[in-house]
Design a protein around this nucleic acid. Sequence first.
DNA 1: CCTCCTATTGCAACTGGTTGCATTTGTATC
DNA 2: GATACAAATGCAACCAGTTGCAATAGGAGG
Lengths: 159, 159
Amino acid sequence: MRETEAKLVGELKGRGYRLTPQRELLLSVLEGSRKHLNAETLLERVHKVYPRANKSVVYRNLELLADLGLVSCVDFGHGRVEYEVHRHPHHHHLTCRHCGRMLEVRSGAFAQLQQQLHQDYGFNADMDHLAIFGLCQACSEKADPRHEHHPHALQGMGF
Amino acid sequence: MRETEAKLVGELKGRGYRLTPQRELLLSVLEGSRKHLNAETLLERVHKVYPRANKSVVYRNLELLADLGLVSCVDFGHGRVEYEVHRHPHHHHLTCRHCGRMLEVRSGAFAQLQQQLHQDYGFNADMDHLAIFGLCQACSEKADPRHEHHPHALQGMGF
DNA sequence: CCTCCTATTGCAACTGGTTGCATTTGTATC
DNA sequence: GATACAAATGCAACCAGTTGCAATAGGAGG
């Protein structure tokens, strides 16, 4: 906790950013949660301590913190982006587009892909921001190939 | 052209969807373009032929067509999603978060990742919807590690 | 060609997120 | 601790995309 706090202060000051109460608060809320948080929840919690906080500050600081590598944001395709402190540097997210469940995964294949892209194209991929969609095992098994697409499946799926 | 048209009709009717002028038009606009198109441009073009077309129809049909595997949509992180007919089944997009340029790529490493995820977690990844962010070769070379993050870099980047 | 049923459309209201701008506030310097 | 300057905030307007709902229109069956 203190460690990331100190890291934050160092990162910010070193680069000419200011240490504002909103910024500290935002990070501490993120650290206080084990789960991903979306911007709305985040704002609610910040609000309890600092009622005049504003959503644009939340978004702008999340962007900054993400940019500094302190938080990572993942778009699970549920209409809102989720944020978390960047403590497990190499885990990725597999989201099932059918049941909506999300799997955290740490596969060497990601590092391999990253390496390959660097080798072949000189591209330095941000693998940590990666969310992959598809069908989880359970849903793959249930899916009958002839009915893979149900009319209105997406609208009626309840997420 | 006709081929995809026929494929569309078949897919739709076979699954109980209707063949509406908006749907056909949307697909033909997508096919008439070699590049990715965003929903706004798409709507403009549809509008020229069918002036009372509406954005919600565009979005709903893009979702349907994507779901049927006829178009693919990629989020380049520029604030709007881009759509294209799904003719090159296995190309992926590397987007530079600094200069915004986009690279089309066909690497075996993606297939390998896909395979690995299937093997290890039984997860069937939709690799075609994948856009990867990072730094392109040019920007990586220009970036001085001590100034990797410029104040307001994202706001001032001009896209 | 008429009827009926339901998929689809058009619309307007809404959502999550972004932006421009005037105001406030960290913080470096004196 | 006062000053000054740029970074950050708060706000309101905005943007892309989504949703609920009443009206419309494919198309299957008669």
